[in-house]
Design a protein around this nucleic acid. Structure first.
Length: 353
DNA sequence: GATCCGTGGTG
DNA sequence: TCACCAAGGAT
């Protein structure tokens, strides 16, 4: 553990590095602007933090711009139909985030007078806001002296101290170590600085220790085994499930239906499929028609299993007595359609439009 | 604490 | 190709 003078020195080194980087992210207020009294818009920061949960910045950023344009204020987001929110979220994954986002916007609008709460403990009460997000909003927007710990910080701290315990068990230890270092004077800048170090210097595969403001204090750097940290518990293997997808085409439109609110891809639209099973389910047509199987299957990797779907297409002439609705081919961007089903439609034998 | 929950980029 | 990874949260 460090002495107080050492901690002071480490904070200064990190913040000097951060101020010099001037890394600009669209939702961020630069240190010099913050010093002028500018503070970030909590709605915009909250939106970015929810979108960036388990999501890369390049992937999430376009969605952030789109949402701010469609919904400039939390009241606008609250007033939108959930289906619209899900539609614009399509492709980002982890769709419970979108449902909680909408629920949270309504709560902030109706119970908090349209203003986000200003403390971590109050922020934690919002749906979809956990320890990381609450800490980050409180620190960045309201200067609450709280410690921010995300995956980047875990990597930096575990290397700094050569934490032997594997994740996720080591989380408690890492939190404690991180909290010791966190700067109560500039909690927002400090937190973003550690995350930036993790994202751009202390990277998982090839850390650039030459440019690291903490290399002088880093135990893993001294030993030279940086990439052995953080240690991780062995992960379970991902099972493979199988199924059949049925693309029904009629008059330039495709049959889609809505998934159940709970569980996987909850509340999103889908192409009808058979059940997904460990063994290939029997092929049972939803309607009698001339079905054509596409040459290649769809392979889609979820967090905890892999899915392989055969794709079958049929053209029909008569309306159907099934639950769902027809959606024009080429109009899929206007649907809450997860990437999995966009892949399915991409492999189906659709008529040219 | 363990499990569930997406997707796309990368080495 | 494939395993790994990404500004986590809810149950």
């Amino acid at each position: 553990m460090w002495t107080d003078p050492q901690i002071t020195e480490m904070r200064a080194a990190l913040l000097a590095w951060y101020d010099q980087q001037g890394r600009t992210l669209p939702w961020r207020v630069r240190p010099e602007d913050r010093a002028q009294g500018l503070s970030p818009n909590p709605y915009a920061v909250w939106l970015s933090e929810i979108m960036l949960q388990q999501t890369t910045i390049p992937h999430g950023t376009p969605y952030w711009f789109k949402f701010l344009e469609l919904y400039p204020t939390v009241q606008d987001l609250a007033a939108a139909p959930l289906d619209d929110v899900l539609t614009h979220w399509a492709g980002l994954g982890y769709y419970a985030r979108a449902r909680n986002l909408h629920k949270c916007a309504i709560l902030v609008t109706e119970a908090y007078g349209g203003e986000f709460p200003e403390t971590k403990s109050e922020l934690l009460k919002l749906p979809g806001v956990g320890d990381y997000t609450a800490s980050t909003i409180a620190a960045i927007c309201f200067n609450e002296p709280t410690s921010i710990v995300d995956g980047n910080v875990e990597r930096v701290i575990s290397r700094l101290h050569r934490v032997e315990a594997p994740l996720p068990k080591a989380k408690a230890i890492i939190r404690k170590l991180a909290a010791t270092l966190a700067d109560p004077e500039r909690p927002g800048d400090y937190g973003q600085a550690v995350m930036d170090v993790g994202a751009t210097v202390c990277t998982p595969r090839t850390p650039a220790c030459e440019t690291c403001p903490w290399a002088h204090w880093c135990q893993a750097h001294r030993v030279g085994d940086m990439t052995d940290f953080p240690k991780k518990s062995p992960k379970k293997e991902r099972p493979v499930r199988h199924g059949h997808a049925f693309v029904l085409v009629r008059d330039g439109a495709v049959w889609l239906r809505r998934r159940d609110e709970a569980g996987l891809l909850g509340g999103m639209m889908e192409v009808p499929t058979s059940a997904w099973a460990d063994d290939m389910p029997p092929l049972e047509w939803p309607v009698s028609a001339d079905w054509i199987r596409s040459a290649t299957d769809v392979r889609h990797v979820f967090t905890h299993f892999e899915l392989r779907l055969s794709v079958h297409t049929a053209q029909i002439a008569d309306p159907l007595d099934l639950e769902g609705r027809w959606v024009d081919i080429g109009d899929f961007e206007n649907e809450a359609l997860p990437s999995l089903f966009k892949k399915v439609l991409g492999k189906a034998n659709l008529p040219q439009t």
